[in-house]
Structures are given as C-alpha cells and as structure tokens.
Nucleic acid binder design. Structure first.
Lengths: 180, 180
DNA sequence: GTCTTTACAAAAGCCATAACTGTGTAAAGG
DNA sequence: CCTTTACACAGTTATGGCTTTTGTAAAGAC
C-alpha cells in the first residue's frame, strides 16, 4: 500500500468518525492528508470507494488484532477472553470500528454496508474456528465457534451486566459445548 | 379492555404496519374502527399513546403465545423448539411484531421505543427461565435461559442456514449448558 | 354517559423557487 | 504522478405560501 493511500485512509477514518458519511467532504480528506482533491479521486474513484476502503482497512486491522490475541495465550480459553476483551475495547474506542463490526448505527457512517444482516464480525467465526481446531484437533468446532461469535456480538449490542460477567458467560458456554 | 379499544388497537396495528408511524393518520384509525377521531383521543391521549398501546398489546400477545407453546409440550426441549418456531413465524408474518421484538427497522414504525439496546424480546428470558425451572427444579437455569434467548435473537436478526438448523443449534447449546 | 359533530389554534408537512455547495470528470501544466 | 483550473450536474439549504394534521374544547345526539 502506497504512502499516500495510508495517509488518506487515516484522514478519511478520522473525518468519517467525526462527521459521518453525509458530512464527509472529499476536499477535507485531501487537505488533511496534504494532497489535492483530485488525488483522492485517482486513488479511490469516488466517495463510496473511499469509505469502503476505510471499512475494509478497519476490518483487516481488527481481525489481525484478534488473531494476535488468540495466538498469544497458550490457554485456549484465556486467549478467547483476551480476544473478546480486545473486541470490546475496540468498539468502545472507535465508533467506526463498532459500525463496521456490528452494522449498528451505521446509517450515518457507512450507508451502503452490503452485508446488512450479516455483520462483518461474523468473519471472526472462521478465525475462532481455526483457533479451536488448533487446540482440539479432530473435534467438531463449528458450532462452538459460531455460538461464541453470536453470543459475543449479542453482548456487544445488548450488554447486561459488566464486561467480566459477559466474558464468563460466553466462555462457560463455549467450554461446555466443547466438552459435550 | 373495552370493545372499542380493541377495535382501535387492531385498526391502528394494521395501518401502522402498512403506512408507518409517519404516515399513520388518526382520522384513518378512527374511521377504520367506525368511531370518530375524538374517541381515539379520548382513549389514548395522543398519537404516541396510541402507538405505544399497540406495541404493548403486541408484546403481550406474543409472550402469551410463547407461554402457551412452552406449556403445551411435555418435553422441555420440544416445547422450546415450538416456542422458537412460533417466534420466527410471528416475526415473518408481521413486521410490526418484528419491530417490537427486535427493535430493528423500528425507525418508521415505532420511533420512540425506549428499550433501544434491550429489545423487548429479552422479556422472554424470564418466561424461558420459569419454563426451565419447572422441568429442572433446584438447578441454575439463568445462564441457559439468557443464552437461549440471545442465540434465538441472533438467529432472528442474522439467519445462517434454514430455520431447522438454527433451532437445532440453539437447542443443542441449551441442552449441554443444562447438562453441565 | 358515552360518542359525535363542529370549530379552531398551533405545529408540522408539502411545493416551488432560487442560491449555494459538493461531486465527479476532464484537460493542461509542473 | 500530482496539482491546478474549469465545468456540468446533482444534491442541499433557505425561503415563503399553502395545505394538512394534530390536539383541545364545547355543544349536541343517541
């Protein structure tokens, strides 16, 4: 990825989070990145292309963050808690990430998200599945992975109690479905 | 509940589903129920009161439907599938019920839903909890109840595969969390 | 007594117009 | 490869006048 591309993505992400899709101005993105408006069009075609690129970029950033957490802890369930905590922190810090992952409140930010009804967070199912496969070779991990992601997303969208309780609940369910 | 009240609630529900909150006309509700506009105001105060009453009514209707299904089958898991199927059918048939239960697509229908972030479907948690308590006395059923409702809502909002697969997944998880 | 009719003020919505702002494209120049 | 300049087009905002709807009130009918 070119140098300018990265500058533009960062500028666009900031401005998008601050002003929303509607209030986002191409010329503002350009000047924040120190380039001309035309360059933005050369890079991303149009406004929609720019915002889509931001969404893709944020998604990749998030998924690599999850994978890192899953690999860093030798205990599969502690690793899962870590990835879970990371997800919460990300969505709390950055409403753009939140919109990308959950699809909620995306109207003003990402009006066209094509995956309506299948939030991008579901991509995490595959990551979790691979993680579980590594720790429980030869076992059926699909149900556990999907259940975990669904429950995590559910707690993300509709918290009941604090973060630790939510993590406990999700991990407990995940463990028993693996033990079964 | 008076006779006219019921007529008005039915008329309002139909018109609300057809035209949305924005397009709902008090005089239309009145004429569909065969009464004067003033009577609608006497009954519900204002437009918001009318629509809120419709939401409450739909919620109660749904919850009693669930309770009936849970009680009708002697096998606790078959009963759960039945209640689950009922929920799906309801939300598919009636977009108003769907909006009330999930809080999704509620902008045009129920602009004021106060329970944003905690969909009314969560009321079903208590119903499910009671159901499980009856079949598994003395056991901790809270986690299973909440997990079941969260997963059901998740499948409702983001289907993956067909209804039967979803029901299988939810019930399997519910069973193992009870057996644990 | 409950519902209807009629009347009315205030708020909100709709329509057409004009001025303005932003998007997207193109071409020329550094 | 990026910038500057220019421009057509679409979309947004501001305006004023008109219409519809809401919500309240009072008088009359069954």
């Amino acid at each position: 990825m070119s140098d300018i591309t990265e500058l533009l993505l960062d500028a666009a992400a900031d401005l998008l989070a601050a002003r929303g899709f509607h209030g986002l101005r191409m010329i503002e993105v350009a000047s924040h990145a120190g380039v001309s408006r035309q360059t933005v069009y050369n890079e991303f075609g149009n406004k929609e292309g720019l915002v889509q690129a931001v969404a893709v970029h944020k998604t990749e950033e998030y998924l690599t963050g999850v994978m890192t957490r899953l690999q860093d802890d030798p205990d599969p369930w502690e690793a899962m808690r870590s990835a879970f905590r990371f997800t919460f922190e990300q969505t709390e810090r950055d409403r753009l990430v939140s919109a990308v992952l959950t699809g909620q409140n995306a109207e003003d930010l990402l009006p066209f998200i094509t995956i309506r009804g299948h939030p991008i967070l579901f991509h995490a199912t595959e990551v979790v599945e691979q993680h579980l496969s590594k720790h429980f070779p030869g076992r059926h991990v699909r149900l556990t992975a999907e259940t975990t992601v669904r429950l995590a997303l559910s707690h993300l969208l509709m918290p009941s109690g604090d973060l630790d309780s939510a993590m406990d609940a999700v991990v407990r369910v995940a463990r028993v479905t693996m033990d079964a």
